[in-house]
Structure formats: structure tokens, C-alpha cells
Amino acid sequence: MDDRRVGDELDIAALLHRYARAVDTKDWELYRSVFTDDAHIDYSSAGAVVGSRDEVVDWFAANFGVIAWSLHHITNIESDISGDSAQVRAMFYNPMQLPGMTEPSFCGGYYHHELVRTPDGWRSRRLREENVWFANGPGQ
């Protein structure tokens, strides 16, 4: 593996870790920094918003505050890098405290990112969350 590939892999992992921190700390400006201005984001598999980066930020700002805490773990990052673009698949595990629940809830699945290299580093231009399972959710 060459030095550029190793650097790209580390930078991509750092981007995904920044994404997790942004969501968990509800830092929507940090969240914006993960994506390109024209990004498309799809959280429909979790019953949430689909739209542009700014539409998603607005939705999160209005709705995510009711979640007392969440702790995203992003692992098993697989990057198919081709020049200045990359297809990335990463697993997530997310314990959280939902409103009205006495015990934590948990979900897991995959993040599918289309990344582009920008002058400011790697950014996601497309994210699709694939929520595979949910435990102790509302109504369960």
C-alpha cells in the first residue's frame, strides 16, 4: 500500500469519526463540515429525513434535541478510492436514550458514502444510512 493510499484511508476514517462526534454532540456546524454544499443525505431507513445537507441540518436541529444522548461507533470502514473520489461502506452501532424510554435503545447498520476530495480534504457528497436493526425502540 502506498503512502497516499494510507493517508487517504486515515483521512476518511477521521471524517467518519468527525461525523459521529457532530451527531452525538449536536454540533450542526461540524456536521455541515463533513459534507459538500450540494450533498444529498438519506436517513429514510431509520424513518428520518431525506434531503440536502441544509434540509437535514434543519430537521436535526428541530428534532434531535429530544434524544438525551447518543454514542455512535463507526467501524469496519471499507474505502474503494479512485483518484479524487471514494465509495465508502462503514458499520455503525448506536446506543441512545430516546424520550419516554427508561432503558437505552440501540441500532446498527451501515453508512454508504460517496466521497470527493476537495481543497479542504475528503467530504461526503452522498450519504445513505442502511439501518439493519433496532432494539428497544418506541413501541417495541
Rank of each mutant, 00 (worst) to 15 (best):
Q97H: 15
W69R: 14
Y43M: 00
W69P: 05
N76D: 07
I81L: 05
A61F: 00
V34I: 10
T75D: 12
A62Y: 01
V34A: 08
L30A: 14
G83N: 08
E129G: 07
V49Y: 00
D11C: 07
E29K: 08
D24S: 10
T36K: 09
H113Y: 15
D120Q: 01
Y111G: 07
T36L: 11
N76H: 15
S79P: 04
D11V: 07
W28K: 07
A68W: 02
L30Y: 09
D42W: 14
V49I: 12
W122A: 03
G65R: 00
T102L: 14
G137Q: 10
N136Y: 09
L98C: 13
W28N: 04
R32S: 02
A20I: 11
G139V: 09
H40S: 06
D8Y: 13
P138C: 09
W69M: 11
H112P: 03
L16S: 05
S85C: 01
D2P: 15
C107S: 10
D11Q: 15
S124Q: 06
D84I: 00
A48H: 04
H72G: 11
F134H: 09
C107Y: 15
R18Y: 02
N63H: 05
R21Q: 10
V6M: 14
H113S: 05
F64V: 00
E29Q: 14
G51I: 12
F35P: 02
D3T: 15
Q87Y: 03
A90C: 03
Y111T: 10
M91V: 06
R126H: 13
